[in-house]
Design a protein around this nucleic acid. Structure first.
Lengths: 138, 138
DNA sequence: ATAATACCTAAACCTGACTTTATGTCAAGC
DNA sequence: GCTTGACATAAAGTCAGGTTTAGGTATTAT
């Protein structure tokens, strides 16, 4: 269903990521609660959060309404992080686009002589744009 | 300049990521070639490539025009990977937006009763959209 | 009944990407 | 000439996030 190895689910359980999971003669029963937990784990992991901090979040869920604020703030912080990460990846993507163009031309020309003359100020306008974005500082 | 620890640069050099770096009585001299190499390393790393594969790319650059095609294909593959990753992050972002909204309402209501009644089919339209995107399979 | 299968635990192991440590060299300033 | 400081190396250590192994139990299929 989620394409997560069994060993990983057991590891997550060991790390306290399924605090309310039920067992039937020793065997873990994944209910809708755990299914949604897995979605949240995947989400928080992709946002760059470490396992131990995801555990903290799960503990807050157990604690009840008194932790709504902490939980909200956690998600807001993660949202900002992911926005930033997407922006970084867009810069990375521009570098990759530039390099794709570069090697397309190199392949046509058989060498990089003309290319080296074009960089950085004689590039075609659309290419100059992605080149500049890929090479800017911040 | 790049905010990379000296230890990391030495590690990269040890791993063969600066194949043409010059030394002056034993000390590494980073020229424009290496500066651009660092930009490419950062880019390929962000695209999910491992150090040993970045080393392979650097080796190709040493080999000359015969490897233009391999290099081009590498960047094209990375470009697709990053596009996919951005899409994943946008789904993650929708989950995070949903959770932000969720805890905003939970904080107002003091409990999750109304929320649980709204999920999944009685959510406000704009929220339903991000909820659906965050929960879809693929 | 027996054998195969699917689950369980604890603990050891693995990988990638660094980082730290221990030890050494070398040029510059006092 | 000696100390200081920035560089050098090799090898060991760290850390996160799993994965594998060894040894055991419980349900299912023949």
């Amino acid at each position: 269903m989620f394409d997560i190895p069994i060993s990983t689910l057991r590891y997550y359980d060991k790390e306290g990521l399924f605090p309310t999971i039920k067992r039937q003669s020793g065997i873990r029963k994944f209910s809708e609660t755990e299914i949604e937990a897995i979605r949240v784990i995947e989400c928080l992991k992709q946002s760059g959060l470490e396992i131990k901090d995801i555990k903290q979040f799960m503990a807050w869920c157990e604690e009840g309404p008194s932790t709504y604020k902490s939980r909200k703030e956690l998600f807001e912080k993660r949202r900002e992080k992911v926005k930033e990460e997407i922006k970084n990846l867009q810069k990375t993507l521009d570098m990759l686009r530039f390099k794709c163009w570069y090697y397309e031309v190199a392949l046509e020309d058989g060498n990089e002589e003309n290319l080296n003359k074009m960089i950085p100020n004689n590039l075609p306008p659309e290419i100059k744009k992605i080149y500049d974005n890929a090479h800017k500082d911040e």
